[in-house]
Structures are given as structure tokens and as C-alpha cells.
Design a protein around this nucleic acid. Structure first.
Lengths: 178, 178
DNA sequence: CAGCAACTAGACAGACCTGTCTGTATGGTT
DNA sequence: AACCATACAGACAGGTCTGTCTAGTTGCTG
């Protein structure tokens, strides 16, 4: 087996299970089985379940940044880029298995603000704010408002099980950025 | 001990612990101990932990409705009533122990949309939508937008540990309702 | 070819979980 | 006064959790 292959597969399995079922609800045995990997390899690579959770969120943050970059590349005007984000979020719920923002879900399961998990969550949200701030640098207040619309629609879509919140948010964002 | 006293105390203890630490992280022994009640009384009154969780959320929903009614009573104009909601939310985070919306947190811990827990969550959000719809019945689109702003700011405030999201959302709501 | 790092399966300890059960005490109602 | 629903404390069963450990296997590298 190639070096770090076990690590990669554990991370992929953790991402699927933690996101789908919730973090506390998934044991390390389940992650190892889903990855097709021995538990010792999981502990050898990550040290503890908590560190695996942090790695899972960091990985997800990185993949999210890459997706945002891909969306950015397809448009030039800041306004189009931001609106494309709403479309991407709406597409996200259309494919099944939508469970909302993995970072907000993790924050719900880890109450202590000093927990390393919460630091990753803050980092992710800061990155979102930073991206929007860069796109809308001439109207910084708009960036904060768009963040609220994105977070709100992601949360509302979980309950509604429907992309409509994204459509409402997008329409509102359109008029905000007019 | 008076009839149903144990039930009331269990519900109060569950509300404290489930909200503060998360539902999966709190065992029934901890709830019984916090309530100063025997575990058999807990099971006699609620049947199972899952049913206790449902009762906890229903109770919270009811208390929330009462608070909203109190806020409503202090204002007459629909616009003032809605804006007062944002103020109440901002006050909420100012007192410590803020952990966001208990219903969104519960939804994060109970992934199955068919779970009774999720039904209570949908009921709560429908009540919020219904309240705003009644206040803003002449501009129903505004109601959906205000819901997004409230949900978004509640979620963002958890991560930020700061009432600023509520201020931003309130400012945006003000201009929406102008 | 030898050695080493990373993998494998699986048993194990110790803690915690939910839910049940036994047996006793107590307060309100008839 | 007698009864009964409800409360109590706490042991218990059966399962799952995290994390460790043993022992054997595989595959790259010098």
C-alpha cells in the first residue's frame, strides 16, 4: 500500500460519515471500517478522534476554498461571482445528502468556544467573509450582509429540505448588489 | 412531592444541559442528577431519552412563543414588532451561555428528516414564519427574507461569539421594511 | 537481500451509554 | 385508616465508546 493512502482513505471516510450522521454519532470503528483500514492505522495517522475531527474540518475547508476558486474563475464581475455562490449552494441541496454547513453542524456539537474544532470553524467563516470582502471591497457592508444571507439560507434549507431559501436569498442579494 | 413536580424538574434540567452541552453529549443519568430526581422517575414520565428530547424541544418552543408574544405586546406597529425581535435576539447573546438556536442545533444532531425531533424543529420554524407573515401580511416576501436574516444572524453569532451579526441583520431589516 | 516503516486483524481495558428492575418511602384520596 | 400512584436509591444487563496493544504481513529502499 502506498504511503499515506490509509490517511487519505480515513479522511474521505470521516468526511462522509461525520457529515452524514454527525460527529458524536460516528465511532472510530465505523470510520475505520468505512475506510477499509485498521483502527491502529487511524490512530497512527491522527492520534485521536478529536484530532481526526479537526483534520476532517480542515480538509473540508480546503476543498470548499478550491470550489469557490473554481466558481470565481468562471466569472469576472464581482457581482456575478457572488451570485454564482448562491447558485452553487442551491445546486448543493439539489443533490441529495444535503445536511447543511458542516462547520455550523460541528459548532453545534462542540459547545466549547476554546475547542480546536471551533477554531477551524472560525477560520472557515473568516475565509468566507474574506472572499466576499475581496469581491465587494468597494461596499464592505454588503459583504457582511451577504454572509448572513448565505448562512441563513444554508440553515433554513436544512429544515425546509428545499432550495427555496437559496432562491429567496439570491433574489435579496441581487437587489443588495444592484 | 407534588404531582408532576418530578416531570417539571426533569424538563428544566434537560433544557439546561441539552442546550448547553448538546443532546448526544448528555446522558440520562446526568439529567436525572441535575433534576435531583431518580432515573426511574425520568423514564416513568418520558418513556425514553428520545421522547424526553422531543418534550424538551416542545417546551422550548412554547416558551419561545410566550416570549415573542411578550415582545409583540410592547409594540403596535408591525415594523417595530419585527425589529424588536432582532433586539431581543441581540440581548440573548449578551447574557452568557448563548449557544445559538436550540432547534438548529438539534437538527444538526438528528440527521434523519423523518425523526420526531425534526418535526418539532419544522414546527418551530413554521411558527416563526407564521408570526412574521402575520405581522408583514402586506409584503409576504419580506417575511421570508426576515426569516433568513434571523436564522443567519443566530448562526453567525454562535461562531463570532458577538452580537454584531444581529446588528447587521437589524440594519438590513430596517431598510427592507422601509 | 536485509531492514524498516506502515499496514493488517482483532483482543482488550475501562469508561460510559440506555433502559430495566427490585425494593422502599411518601403523600394525596377515599 | 387503607390504598395507590408516584417518588426514591441504586444495582444490573447488554451494548458501545475511545484508545492501547500484540502479533503478523506487506512493500519500498538502501
Amino acid at each position: 500500500m502506498r504511503k499515506n493512502d490509509a490517511r487519505t482513505r480515513v479522511l474521505a471516510a470521516a468526511s462522509r460519515l461525520f457529515y452524514r450522521d454527525g460527529i458524536h454519532a460516528v465511532g472510530v470503528d465505523a470510520v475505520a471500517a468505512e475506510a477499509g483500514v485498521a483502527k491502529a492505522s487511524l490512530y497512527g495517522n491522527f492520534g485521536s478522534k478529536n484530532q481526526l475531527v479537526v483534520a476532517y474540518l480542515r480538509d473540508r475547508d480546503q476543498r470548499w476554498q478550491e470550489r469557490v476558486d473554481a466558481i470565481t474563475a468562471a466569472h469576472t464581475a464581482p457581482r456575478d461571482r457572488v451570485l454564482a455562490l448562491f447558485d452553487a449552494y442551491a445546486d448543493w441541496i439539489t443533490g441529495d445528502g444535503y445536511r447543511g454547513c458542516a462547520f455550523l453542524n460541528a459548532a453545534a456539537e462542540f459547545p466549547d468556544p476554546a475547542d480546536p474544532v471551533r477554531e477551524v470553524v472560525r477560520h472557515h467563516k473568516a475565509a468566507l467573509r474574506s472572499y466576499l470582502g475581496a469581491q465587494l471591497r468597494e461596499t464592505p457592508d454588503r459583504a457582511d450582509e451577504v454572509v448572513l444571507l448565505l448562512e441563513g439560507s444554508a440553515a433554513a434549507a436544512v429544515v425546509a429540505q428545499d432550495p427555496q431559501p437559496f432562491h429567496i436569498a439570491r433574489r435579496l442579494a441581487e437587489s443588495l448588489l444592484a
